[in-house]
Amino acid sequence: MSEAASRAYGSLRRILAEPLGMLGVVLVLLMIGGAVFADLLAAAEPNKISPRDRFLGPSLTHLLGTDQLGRDLFSRALHGGRIALSVALISTAASLAIGVVLGLIAGYGPRWLDNLMILLFDAIKSFPTVMLALALVTLFGPSLTAVMVVVVLVNVPGYGRIIRTQTLALKSAQFVTAAQSMGAGTVRVLRVHILPNVIGPLLILASMDIPVVVAIEAGLSFLGLGVRPPTPSWGAILNDGFTAIRDTPWIAIAGGLPIILITLGFTFLGETLRDVFDPRLKRQG
């Protein structure tokens, strides 16, 4: 086994040794597996309307019951996972990329640029998340793109600030000065000498932010401002269930359960990752 592989194996064992980490890994794998193999696991089509099967309670044919159009909720919940996870992955990756670049610029650039960036970050952060999301969705019109723009705007200030603080601390480190004096350009210093040193804690934080991203997508879809019907989304199922909550509670349960499981899974996993790899982060809360 190569050194990197054995190190990865060692970290995995440390995560699995924690009961919470174990639970997190199991939940996350379960939800990812459900989304990836949705077509195999659920026999029914997620969007197939069948008026005769409206509002059926949970049974062996329909594990989570059916909704107001007779669509199988188990299948819709699994396929909803695809939307949630792809939104989470794409928008988290985009926020990381933008946050890292802005943070490096703020930390390494001139003082006035730094102050300007910090002011910008603070201003974006001062919008209450859902209010900002509602405003953006009104402007762009409801769509997945709008949801992702919201996520990026919400995440970038936090990531940018962390990278900026760490870059500031490294800016005058000896190995950076050495590289500069040997004629390394700004881009090379940032890419080769600073970035590898600041990215680790950020990745852990990003993994802990995935529940927030899932919640934003589901929340906007719940309000009817996210994905367009009939695309299956957990938030949309929850909304169908909310409308019919008095008579057919299982629809709301089918929409909420996956949200609860995935947010818990990623949070437990993130907490354990943090404790195992970077205990310093713990004190910052």
């Binding site: 529940p211 909550i245 509670p249 949200i259 947010t263 818990l264 907490e271």
Partner: peptide, 26 residues
């Protein structure tokens, strides 16, 4: 500790709907 992490993680609108379902409807 686990309870704290769990309530932080779960989105408030899910809590709202489940609370409505349990305490008001059922």
């Amino acid at each position: 500790g686990v309870f704290s992490v769990a309530v932080i993680a779960v989105p408030s609108f899910v809590v709202a709907i489940y609370a409505l379902l349990i305490f008001a409807v059922t």
